[in-house]
Simulated scan of single mutants.
Amino acid sequence: MPKLNIFVGTMYGGALDVAEQVKPLFEQAGFDVTIFEQPMLEDLIQHKTDVALFCVSTTGSGDFPGNFVPFVRAFHEQGPALSELRYGLIALGDSSYGETFCGAGRALDALLEDHGATRLGERLEIDAMETFMADDEAVPWVEQWIDSQQLKAA
């Protein structure tokens, strides 16, 4: 059974809610799914995954949420090669913050690509100013992403 790991960066629980709402979609597609609520870099490097999904909210002026800071700090320190990693990214933000909208998701995307990872499809950016419940956008996006990237294992 293929493995999918979901890495969550959240301040108030919105990104975790998205992860929990999309997990059954991946399970229905034939994946064994693990959600990392307090992700560490070792979780990405040591836990084999066929595909990774990052659900990351943005705080402050485009910053990573507190639970995700150790992951990013270790990433910068260790600079792992990720040429085998295929991933998707759901970024949560608030467009009223202007240029820093979804800043953490965009920064993570650039960091992953700089280390050789391959993003499958486009990044989903969810705007809290337009969408009250983030999973209202995330669930249909994941359904389409699974189909368009031919991720069904069953």
Score class of each variant (00 low, 15 high):
residue 11 M to T: 15
residue 104 A to C: 03
residue 40 M to Y: 06
residue 50 D to V: 02
residue 9 G to E: 10
residue 98 G to S: 07
residue 153 A to C: 11
residue 28 Q to D: 10
residue 106 R to D: 04
residue 145 W to F: 14
residue 144 Q to N: 13
residue 134 A to T: 03
residue 21 Q to S: 14
residue 65 P to I: 07
residue 138 A to Q: 10
residue 61 S to E: 14
residue 143 E to H: 09
residue 13 G to D: 06
residue 125 E to I: 05
residue 108 L to T: 05
residue 118 T to V: 11
residue 125 E to K: 07
residue 32 D to S: 15
residue 22 V to H: 06
residue 151 L to F: 07
residue 59 T to I: 05
residue 107 A to P: 01
residue 59 T to E: 01
residue 107 A to R: 06
residue 95 S to A: 04
residue 62 G to W: 05
residue 16 L to E: 12
residue 134 A to V: 08
residue 20 E to M: 05
residue 80 P to S: 02
residue 150 Q to L: 10
residue 66 G to Q: 11
residue 150 Q to V: 10
residue 154 A to C: 14
residue 50 D to F: 01
residue 21 Q to D: 15
residue 27 E to N: 05
residue 116 G to R: 01
residue 31 F to K: 02
residue 147 D to Q: 14
residue 14 G to Q: 08
residue 91 A to P: 00
residue 30 G to R: 03
residue 93 G to T: 05
residue 91 A to K: 02
residue 105 G to W: 01
residue 114 D to R: 12
residue 71 F to A: 06
residue 148 S to V: 13
residue 3 K to A: 13
residue 80 P to V: 04
residue 70 P to M: 04
residue 66 G to F: 15
residue 59 T to R: 08
residue 31 F to P: 02
residue 128 A to M: 12
residue 154 A to F: 12
residue 3 K to D: 06
residue 25 L to R: 09
residue 35 I to Q: 00
residue 142 V to S: 06
residue 85 L to F: 13
residue 104 A to Q: 03
residue 60 G to M: 11
residue 120 L to W: 07
residue 107 A to W: 00
residue 131 T to S: 02
residue 12 Y to M: 11
residue 130 E to T: 06
residue 152 K to R: 15
residue 140 P to S: 05
residue 37 E to V: 12
residue 122 E to Q: 13
residue 131 T to E: 12
residue 65 P to M: 00
residue 24 P to C: 09
residue 51 V to Y: 01
residue 31 F to G: 05
residue 1 M to K: 06
residue 78 Q to W: 01
residue 17 D to G: 10
residue 91 A to I: 02
residue 116 G to Y: 07
residue 62 G to R: 00
residue 75 F to V: 09
residue 82 L to I: 03
residue 63 D to I: 08
residue 118 T to W: 00
residue 52 A to C: 00
residue 21 Q to A: 15
residue 149 Q to R: 09
residue 58 T to W: 10
residue 116 G to S: 01
residue 110 A to L: 12
residue 73 R to G: 08
residue 21 Q to E: 15
residue 54 F to K: 00
residue 79 G to P: 03
residue 129 M to D: 15
residue 136 D to P: 01
residue 103 G to R: 00
residue 134 A to C: 14
residue 18 V to E: 04
residue 27 E to L: 00
residue 140 P to V: 09
residue 122 E to K: 13
residue 14 G to Y: 00
residue 151 L to D: 10
residue 99 E to I: 02
residue 80 P to T: 10
residue 61 S to W: 10
residue 131 T to H: 09
residue 89 L to A: 01
residue 49 T to C: 08
residue 71 F to E: 04
residue 58 T to D: 10
residue 135 D to Y: 09
